[in-house]
Design a protein around this nucleic acid. Structure first.
Lengths: 205, 205
DNA sequence: TTCCGACGGTGGTCTGACCACGCTGTATAT
DNA sequence: ATATACAGCGTGGTCAGACCACCGTCGGAA
């Protein structure tokens, strides 16, 4: 009859740990209390604490180091990717799905960049690209930053990790194609941008 | 020096359980062995088995019912959504990101439908839509099915769950708009499709 | 001064115990 | 004979304690 609080101690623990992190003002890289201390402070068994920490670990929010402790972590490429992949990516069709989806997402990011239309930053990034080599990952990270959508960022991170783990053949690096893509962005022409993107990914007709 | 097998018993257990599921040909809804039996069969402690099951539960791949057992489950709307949301969606900007991203994903799905160009199924779905009411969720589930990309399906499920949990105001139901969207799909005109979609989502200029 | 080993703290794992809950079969009451 | 209530069993949920492997450190020995 009561509202909730019924299910799953470990879920409650996750929330408490989250609160604790916020209240104590812990930052990425900081150490959180040990399992035994959490167990005592929260008045629950250590195994329940561990289940909560496992969940946080799966989400990529913490990192455990045996003999040292548990640390807050930047929520990038996490265990989730590996685990999900063993379940999801069981056939070749799924591999193609990853490729297709990643490309759709990347095109979405480019559309976001067009929407924001932050000419200054694009220009300065173009200058940077002229002087030094920028990896494909760095390039799209910049695009996503310009798109200013954190959720898209997370999705892209997961998908690109997936993608890399699949060992598709790599395209040769071509700085010129990146530059023309940036130029297209500066022109603000969506169709042109997508055309250049497909060229980059060797998908032009 | 050795390749791996070093880290995390519970990760190994997850993989073994997965193998077990495949070998035994278990389907969604089936019961998997009890924690104690898994513990014995895999020669590991029950607490390690539980950590593995927690991971699977977070991924939405199993469902545990106290007093009954653990069951395979359709990997839809899972705990992950709730947990991630408490961490990720802390500000209003994030909410807007969810909305934007969901719409981009839905448009991608429509593009996939265009690529597959499965006229027959679109036509038959259109007939169905004429005779009965179809919820927004059901409509897009059908679109994703027609798009034939399981990964997109999973992303959409997660995002749309996010979205619903945010309590944005709901649009009034308008069967006519869905029908015109389907018509646009049948015409194979991408720009027209997107236009109708934006109309559906009240985003037309 | 340098080096090395003991020590304490930490996560990783296992075991055994108890509880709460759902199912089922049996014994009882009708 | 049928219907009902209850006890037993198997299940997941949780806890406590133990031991291991590993890491950093600190103090003593060379």
């Amino acid at each position: 009859m009561n509202k909730e609080a019924s299910n799953k101690v470990y879920i409650e623990i996750v929330k408490k740990i989250r609160t604790m992190i916020v209240e104590d003002g812990l930052k990425i890289g900081d150490k959180i209390p040990s399992e035994r201390e959490l167990s005592e402070r929260l008045q629950v068994g250590r195994s329940s604490v561990r289940e909560a920490l496992r969940a946080l670990e799966l989400l990529g929010l913490i990192e455990t180091r045996r003999g040292e402790g548990t640390f807050l972590r930047d929520a990038r490429g996490n265990q989730l990717v590996q685990l999900v992949s063993t379940f999801i990516l069981q056939d070749e069709k799924a591999k193609e799905d990853v490729k297709d989806t990643l490309q759709l997402i990347e095109m979405d990011c480019l559309r976001l960049v067009l929407q924001r239309n932050n000419v200054e930053q694009i220009v300065s990034f173009r200058k940077l690209l002229e002087s030094v080599n920028v990896s494909d990952e760095e390039f799209f990270l910049k695009m996503i930053e310009l798109g200013d959508n954190h959720l898209m960022y997370r999705i892209w991170i997961i998908l690109s990790n997936f993608y890399r783990s699949l060992n598709f053949p790599e395209e040769p690096y071509s700085k010129a194609k990146y530059l023309t893509l940036l130029d297209a962005l500066l022109q603000g022409d969506e169709n042109l941008v997508l055309e250049k993107y497909l060229l980059l990914r060797k998908l032009s007709t």
